[in-house]
């Protein structure tokens, strides 16, 4: 059996349609990851012991349980507590909530990397807390954490393939289906790999651009 570009060409529309689900899970997951991650990080470093402990527990749970298991839990368990979510929502939620735990830890690490003296200097000048965070801590934390954050987002695109287990027709699932019909796994998986790779190429490119811009100012 020779390698056939025709197989890829014929099935490309289906693969690209499936990639839209991959993108949806990834982008929505990223949004949850970053927004929720910021809150988690704030809770984790808060002086309120209870809040900090709850956040720490959350983080260790979502980091300690395989995402595949979390996904299946979200899909099968949430209906029991009255949350009957469509599969796509369960997948987005699982991916986003898990990734948020990592994002929170990346941000916390980045904040800790900023010498305490910088905060002290701001206090000595009478700079208010909000300005301290907005102008001094967060810009530096983003700069310090950016490479790890980009890493995390790329990871998120890749783990979106796990959503195939709850029946979502994203890229990996559709590739499997097409392979089942055409018996051309080599072509189909190469095409799927290329699509994943391109998506992540764009993300890492955007990350590099952001790093450059942050460095400049």
């Amino acid at each position: 059996m020779n390698f056939s570009f025709d197989v890829i060409w014929h099935n490309l529309p289906y693969l690209l349609a499936a990639a839209r689900w991959t993108l949806l899970i990834s982008v929505a997951g990223m949004a949850i990851s970053i927004v929720w991650g910021v809150f988690l990080c704030a809770a984790r470093i808060s002086k309120n012991r209870l809040l900090a402990n709850v956040a720490a527990l959350y983080i260790s749970f979502f980091r300690g349980v395989p995402l595949l298991v979390q996904l299946l839990m979200a899909y099968y368990m949430l209906p029991y507590v009255g949350l009957d979510l469509p599969a796509i929502a369960a997948a987005i939620l699982a991916v986003g909530l898990c990734s948020a735990a990592y994002t929170a830890e990346i941000l916390r690490g980045a904040l800790q990397a900023i010498p305490a003296g910088q905060t002290e200097a701001a206090h000595a000048l009478g700079i208010p807390g909000f300005s301290l965070w907005k102008r001094i801590l967060v810009p530096q934390a983003i700069r310090i954490g950016l490479p790890s954050l980009v890493n995390e987002l790329i990871l998120l695109v890749k783990v979106s393939s796990l959503a195939s287990v709850v029946g979502i027709g994203e890229l990996t699932r559709i590739s499997q289906n097409i392979t089942g019909q055409t018996y051309r796994p080599l072509e189909i998986y190469i095409a799927a790999a290329a699509i994943y790779f391109l998506i992540n190429l764009v993300i890492s490119g955007l990350g590099r651009l952001a790093e450059k811009r942050l460095q400049a100012g």
């Binding site: 910088q118 200097a121 000595a124 000048l125 208010p128 807390g129």
Partner: peptide
Amino acid sequence: SSGTLRKQRQHIGMVFQQFNLWPH
């Protein structure tokens, strides 16, 4: 209150051993 404290600190300049400039 933190607001009053900030007002008081405005009148007291401080220079640190490690400079503590904001690198960005």
